[in-house]
Computed example of a mutant assay.
Amino acid sequence: MLMFNRSQPARLHYMANGYRVLSQGDHVVCAVSGEKIPLDALRYWSNARQEAYASAEIATRAMTGK
């Protein structure tokens, strides 16, 4: 019997208006906080840096360096 771990990180290619799934998973990891972000809750990322962020505040901090 095959068992699947449902808590597997996805690999994504981030684009300006969305992302493309490169390998299946149910979440990505915030580049700053390390927090797991479910794909259905992913709202903030940098296509230039190819990073995901858990919140608008964290994304702003990452992009401004503060």
Rank of each mutant, 00 (worst) to 15 (best):
D40S: 15
Y44G: 04
Q50H: 07
K66T: 03
E51P: 00
N5Y: 07
E57V: 12
L12I: 08
V21D: 01
P9D: 03
Q24E: 14
M3P: 10
A59G: 02
R43V: 02
V21S: 10
G65D: 05
H27W: 04
R6V: 08
G25F: 01
N5S: 13
V21L: 12
I37W: 03
V32F: 06
A48F: 13
A56C: 01
V29T: 15
E57M: 09
A54G: 13
A56V: 02
L42Y: 06
F4K: 15
E51K: 14
C30M: 13
E51D: 01
F4V: 15
S33G: 07
G65L: 08
I58Q: 10
D26R: 11
A52C: 08
R6G: 08
S23L: 14
P9F: 03
W45G: 03
C30N: 11
Y44R: 05
H27C: 09
Y19Q: 03
S55F: 12
R49D: 13
W45Q: 01
G25K: 03
P9G: 00
N47W: 13
N47F: 14
K36T: 00
G25A: 07
E51S: 09
R6Q: 13
K36D: 02
G18H: 10
P9C: 05
P38K: 06
A10D: 06
Q8M: 12
A31K: 01
R61V: 03
A62Y: 05
M1Q: 14
S46M: 08
A54E: 13
R11E: 12
W45F: 04
V32G: 10
F4I: 15
A62I: 11
P9E: 11
S23C: 12
T60F: 04
A41G: 02
G18S: 08
Q24Y: 07
R11K: 11
A16D: 13
P38L: 08
A54N: 09
Y53G: 11
F4L: 15
F4C: 12
I37N: 02
K66Y: 00
Q50Y: 05
G65V: 02
I58L: 12
A41R: 15
R11A: 08
M1F: 15
S7P: 00
A62E: 03
S23N: 09
S23Y: 07
S33I: 02
A54L: 14
V21I: 14
R61C: 05
M1H: 15
E51R: 09
A41N: 09
Q50P: 05
L42P: 09
D26I: 04
T60N: 01
Y44P: 01
A31T: 03
D40R: 13
L42G: 02
H13M: 05
N47H: 14
R11G: 02
W45K: 01
G18E: 11
M63V: 04
I58C: 13
P38G: 00
A56Y: 10
L12M: 08
A31M: 07
R11S: 06
M3C: 14
G34Q: 08
A31H: 08
K66W: 07
R20L: 13
S33A: 09
